[in-house]
Design a protein around this nucleic acid. Structure first.
Lengths: 211, 211
DNA sequence: TAGTTCGGAGAACGGTTGTTTACTGGATGA
DNA sequence: TCATCCAGTAAACAACCGTTCTCCGAACTA
């Protein structure tokens, strides 16, 4: 396999990616359900009708964007879960990774936060499903940690969901803070997020001894 | 003051409310930035041009909806904070109130969850500001509780934000669960929410003794 | 009662939308 | 080399959009 793709398919994937990128850019300042097919093709520089060669409608493009956006998030979470330090170091590292991810993929974060409860059903479901797999992955990692000894699977899962939600919310808040341009707002968000994770971590350590 | 309002103004407020209600209904299945002016007036049963007698554009109507929706949320939170029972009873009561609120004002909840990160800047800012006042109110209530002794204001505030976010997320999840129609999904959400609040509550009790 | 105010109606505007149909020309594969 | 495929083009369609301007009639005010 000297060339994994023919010229034909390579070019097709190229304009497909251009459509995704163009749409993602436009979605910085509007939501998916108001994004027009013509608007996207205009930005990409192709004829409106060419859109149909790649997606049936904007909803399908949205679902493709979900896979792209949450794929990059998966990388982020794996980077966090790989750490084996103490609780405090892990928290600092977690928030730092989130911060860096927001700076690298701001449009992805914005898209996920916006369309998670957005107006397109198929996209909402795609995000929900992906975040679900996400929580499952986090739960599996939490389970291996010594602190989780004696925890039932349901409790680990609810903790994982708490973490995932918090990470997404923090990322969105961080994005808003940077967009507002208020000096120091981002730093404030980071410091609050650290303390919130710390409080959850404390609750986790004392979970078993209560009931 | 036998009649607080003339027939004129009363009728105006009536159709204004009809516009808000009509828009809110349409917003169940789409987002604000894709909602058309004509679409709303058509549902209400008035001429498109009459819209301008009440709002400059859809963004302004959105901001008005924010005030209406979060006004009802304020009532909910006050009901929660008024309780003076033990931690466990308060958690059960909190989740119950949220559950009942979701069932009474599903469209308001949907709107807030959707437009919190939505495509209309003015509406986003209105929601953010309202949730901020919200967190402040919760923080003030938390501060009076014995558990908060020795807490600095910043820490109380970060806890309040954690609670507010959690409540909004729970309400949205509850709404989705009921919309999906899966039997028992709502109950599952409620049980998870209770345990998450319990874990946060435990973290809160052991906060001071760490660090 | 006479004059004014104003919420709403109606028609018309230029512009944009999604989608269809027919077509072109270069990559593809026998 | 030659027939086939297929990503992208071009034109046309009816439907809808936000907005302006003009007018009406009922509620107000003096």
């Amino acid at each position: 396999m000297s060339h994994s793709l023919g010229v034909r398919q390579a070019q097709k994937q190229k304009t497909r990616q251009a459509l995704l990128d163009g749409a993602l850019g436009l979605l910085e300042e509007q939501s998916l359900s108001s994004l027009g097919l013509r608007e996207v093709t205009r930005v990409v520089g192709i004829a409106p009708t060419a859109f149909y060669r790649h997606f049936r409608d904007m909803g399908e493009l949205g679902v493709a964007l979900v896979e792209e956006a949450l794929g990059s998030l998966h990388v982020m979470v794996r980077a966090i879960l790989a750490e084996q330090d103490g609780a405090e170091e892990r928290i600092d590292r977690t928030v730092a990774v989130v911060e860096q991810h927001v700076r690298r993929y701001p449009l992805h974060i914005r898209f996920v936060a916006r369309e998670r409860h957005g107006g397109v059903r198929a996209v909402r479901q795609a995000i929900a499903g992906e975040l679900d797999r996400f929580a499952e992955e986090v739960a599996a990692a939490l389970k291996t940690q010594p602190v989780s000894e004696g925890w039932c699977d349901d409790d680990v899962r609810m903790l994982a969901e708490l973490y995932v939600d918090r990470l997404v919310m923090t990322a969105a808040a961080l994005l808003d803070a940077e967009a507002d341009g208020v000096e120091g707002a981002a730093g404030q968000v980071v410091r609050v997020a650290r303390r919130q994770l710390r409080l959850i971590s404390i609750g986790r350590r004392h979970w078993r001894e209560e009931k």
